[in-house]
């Protein structure tokens, strides 16, 4: 067991959380490697959470230079142009995150996310991407799937006071304690592309309006060739037109995607920090669960809207499961 055990230093630092998820989970966390791309507010929150939790390494990818707008929901970069000028956002965030926890290796990977190869993604246990185009989401997800080992894939976006998380854990197997015995749970996930291809009429009856609205905007950005998030209220007429087309094609009721919601999402370029904290917190928790094998991971979308305050899980996949957690139990004698 030598070398496997947590060091004294780790036990002292992680004391409170080991009491939550146990020493085994902590060991698994400390050996995991996470890739994070697109350092927006919610992702910054996420990075803080997993660095504190004590993952093995975090690799940051975001070549943008810092602007005031970028800093609106960022607490990692000092508000001093002398510090931030000339460095990429990833480099600056990396400098700060290292200080949060010296036991975590934080590094920077330059380059365009959409150009990274399957071999590159294979180095990671979890990949979290944000603010990317529909096609990038699909292609990165596919590359993670092609890797021989299982890579947990997440997309996350915050617009205005709304947030969305998508997760693909492929075929996920974990054990769950129940009474004195342990059960093995299997969950089969869909890819992002598979999930969003589910016909709207087969969606859960009261599916989150956010799901539909975000698909319309995603499609709009793709058709217009926009940089993700580069929208404004002026785009509303075109988006309304697209909503009608999509709803007609899917024989769906247009009123399920209200104008007011679309307008908020189109305008919402600056992030609302409380929502970033919430989305980054939930995402952090999900990644910790997936890596540590402790707890039921969500399947497969999470939505939060500060307007109604609900944080909802939706299962939108080819194979929907009645129970959110396990679709197959097999007892393991313990």
């Amino acid at each position: 067991m030598d070398g496997e055990e947590l060091t004294e230093q780790e036990t002292a630092l992680y004391d409170r959380q080991i009491r939550v998820w146990g020493a085994d989970a902590q060991r698994r966390l400390s050996k995991s490697h996470i890739l994070v791309s697109g350092l927006k507010g919610s992702v910054i929150e996420f990075c803080k959470n997993i660095v504190l939790a004590g993952v093995g390494s975090v690799t940051l990818n975001d070549d943008r230079m810092v602007t005031e707008e970028i800093l609106s929901a960022n607490f990692l970069v000092p508000a001093d142009p002398n510090v931030y000028t000339g460095k990429s956002l990833a480099e600056l965030c990396s400098d700060s995150l290292k200080e949060f926890n010296r036991m975590v290796r934080v590094s920077v990977q330059e380059g365009d996310l959409s150009n990274f190869s399957v071999d590159f993604f294979r180095k990671f246990d979890a990949v979290v991407i944000s603010s990317c185009s529909l096609s990038t989401k699909k292609s990165v997800n596919e590359k993670c799937r092609k890797s021989l080992k299982r890579i947990a894939f997440y997309t996350v976006d915050c617009k205005d006071s709304c947030g969305e998380i998508f997760v693909d854990l492929q075929n996920y197997i974990y054990s769950k304690k129940k009474g004195d015995g342990a059960f093995e749970c299997h969950i089969k996930y869909s890819t992002f592309e598979e999930a969003i291809s589910v016909p709207w009429k087969s969606l859960p009856v009261r599916v989150s309006k956010l799901y539909l609205a975000l698909r319309v905007i995603e499609k709009f950005e793709e058709l217009e060739g926009r940089i993700p998030g580069e929208t404004s209220a002026a785009d509303l007429p075109k988006v309304q037109k697209l909503r009608k087309d999509l709803c007609d094609a899917q024989s769906h009721d247009e009123s399920r995607i209200p104008d007011s919601l679309l307008e908020r999402l189109l305008e919402g370029r600056s992030e609302f920090p409380p929502v970033c904290a919430i989305i980054g917190g939930i995402l952090g928790q999900e990644v910790i669960k997936a890596i540590s094998g402790k707890g039921d991971p969500m399947k497969n979308f999470f939505f939060f809207d500060a307007m109604d305050g609900k944080g909802t899980i939706e299962d939108i996949s080819e194979v929907q499961t009645d129970l959110p957690n396990c679709n197959l139990f097999s007892a393991i004698t313990d």
């Binding site: 959380q17 929150e45 959470n49 939790a53 409380p274 904290a277 917190g281 952090g284 928790q285 500060a306």
Partner: peptide, 19 residues
């Protein structure tokens, strides 16, 4: 009397407090 504590829950709760 050590309380179980993780950063993620605190972050979520803090967001909700501000809202």
């Amino acid at each position: 009397n050590i309380v179980h504590a993780v950063a993620t829950t605190n972050a979520v709760i803090a967001g909700l407090i501000v809202i």
